[in-house]
Amino acid sequence: MSRELRIFIDSFFPILITGLKVTIPLTLIVFILGTLLAVIVAIIRIRKIKVLSQISWFYVWIIRGTPLIVQLFIVFFGLPKMGIIIPAIPAAIITFTLSVGAYSSEIVRSAILAVPTGQWEAAEALGFSYIQMMIKVILPQATKIAVPPLFNSFISLVKDTSLASTITVTEMFLATQRITARTYEPFILYIEVGLIYLIFCSVLTWLQSKVEDKLSFNKGKSIKKKEKSYVEVN
């Protein structure tokens, strides 16, 4: 067995396990917190709540207008100068969450606004309060609209977490860099880590189609069923 192949095989599980232990949990936590933040920001902006709405606009403007790596450096390397010391992993979680929150708030906002006026009016006419209407009527329908673009940011996030390596978080990419420094096999090792990212993202793509199927309360399921029986008859 060649040396390259042995290094490839020997490194596979250490890299994968770092991925499962750091990259995946980091991604999941950030995605959940970020999406929650996005929903809150979206509703604040739709309702045009005074002050909060301006703050939200400013927040989205700053986050979308500056590079993620700059934000990471400010939080991890810059804030200690002001006396605020945040350890690497929390710093990564905070920065990524703010980033996902800003980008996804626009996704959530457009999805909420895409729910037909008739649905808002029907809920209002039945006496729903704003919060009840959001939870029971609007958000379930907006979710269906938002799933494809939200999964887009989910998949981007998996790969963006590699930037956390620059602030000393030992995630998958930094783990690979360390093995590379020891073995000096950058070609196969970076291809290897790339492959593992690809596997993670493929799982997410598969998950997306499952979620979309589950949410297809119109068309989707029943039509598929009908098509099947039609084929059987013929």
Binding site: Q119, L126, G127, F128, S129, P140, Q141, K144, F217
Partner: peptide, 20 residues
């Protein structure tokens, strides 16, 4: 303007349960 994500009976009970 029925709620598309709810079944027929859920459409009817949603407001009585949630609002009342």
């Amino acid at each position: 303007n029925l709620f598309p994500h709810k079944t027929v009976i859920e459409n009817i009970v949603l407001a009585p349960i949630t609002v009342n």
